[in-house]
Design a protein around this nucleic acid. Sequence first.
DNA 1: CCTCCTTTGAACTATCTAGTTCATACCTTA
DNA 2: TAAGGTATGAACTAGATAGTTCAAAGGAGG
Lengths: 229, 229
Amino acid sequence: MTTGKTTTSRPSGSSRPERQRDPERTKAELLQIATEVFAQDGYSGARVDEIAERTSTTKRMIYYYFGGKEGLYLAVLENAYQGIRAAEQGLDVTGLEPVAAIRRLAELTYDYHVEHPEFIRLVSIENIHRGEFIRRIDALRSIANPAAALIDNILSRGRDDGSIRHDVDRIDVHMMISSYCVFQVANQHTFGHLFGRDMGDESMRPHHRAMIGDVIAAWVATPLVTAPR
Amino acid sequence: MTTGKTTTSRPSGSSRPERQRDPERTKAELLQIATEVFAQDGYSGARVDEIAERTSTTKRMIYYYFGGKEGLYLAVLENAYQGIRAAEQGLDVTGLEPVAAIRRLAELTYDYHVEHPEFIRLVSIENIHRGEFIRRIDALRSIANPAAALIDNILSRGRDDGSIRHDVDRIDVHMMISSYCVFQVANQHTFGHLFGRDMGDESMRPHHRAMIGDVIAAWVATPLVTAPR
DNA sequence: CCTCCTTTGAACTATCTAGTTCATACCTTA
DNA sequence: TAAGGTATGAACTAGATAGTTCAAAGGAGG
């Protein structure tokens, strides 16, 4: 089917203003732009050509370095999760009483989420796809989660000194905090529209931040008996 | 460019085994299948041809009744939201003390969410699109939300009898409950994978259901002073 | 400085997909 | 029962899109 396509445009000998060769830079740029575009439009919605156009390189490089759209998306996902892992490693609640520490942790988690909406969007997108991609990223399998470990540590201290109830585990706590923080970003458009509260409004942040702290603190400090006797 | 295409196949006179004519049924079937497919694959991921193939009618009808893919998606969204509105109208917490009532409401909300995952998926999808479609559905604009009204009612009673704190409003409460319930469904794939807890596991439901009840009850019943003096 | 491997560029193509067109059967109503 | 509107079917098409191919420039090693 090889039609004409005889001479490929560029007059031989013309000096190409070729970019400096730098594989790492090229890969990093593709990854960054791809992160933006996938977070913006979703996996199906994202266009490989658009990603390429927004970089200083070409679509060819996506196939050269990442194998294709799917490989690029996998790389984007992994990179994003490595980012939050790194951030979690920086969490510091030393010197606080257990309940205060867990309140602090909730508030810091809130901060991270509102500051990284594109990460939350990638997580949402991945869930729309039922986690089919993340499941295939070996690097994310069974890697200890810094935040969960920190929660575990706080809960232990609190149980020992009697300030925290015994029937909540680290996953419960992490799930509760994540639910709220993710929702703030992931569902802001429908919730904001239907209930008239713009969760993206910066002036609301102190209120929303304090809320998750209050909720978590009130919950974990609650004694087992729910009704006073 | 009108090429051949002279006689269009079917021999004239052949009796077509045509389906019973029933516009309402045709529209309803399209809407239902479209809901499944959009919830399954997202807006960009959904294929008009696939929707058509899974019905007993044809793609032509999508364009005839809904104008196109977008119109069909708008109809699906509106229909789904009308569904949850109707469900909320059936919520009943009469005869309960304010704190018990709000705990009950949280648990009933949890039940609805886990029983309607496809609705949650549509909400997630709509948020990926930044609410651009829902904003255009006039029927969903400023319609009173039954659940929010109910919360308002409970909070009033609780404030009057002193059992509920004064500094949380109905939107705060609704947001907190929704966060948790939506997360249970919307983020089950990534969370389950990364933390080893399958939120879809039915045996976990009583635990997860009780959790949001406990959290909300502990929170709204907390007195304003956070530290004892 | 010649050769070969790595990296990059630009055009090309097969396929998929939303949307359209033409044709026609059914049904209501006058 | 004739006519015109409504409902439905099947094939078609223009455009978009992921992926490929040809080609060549840069640099390293001999």
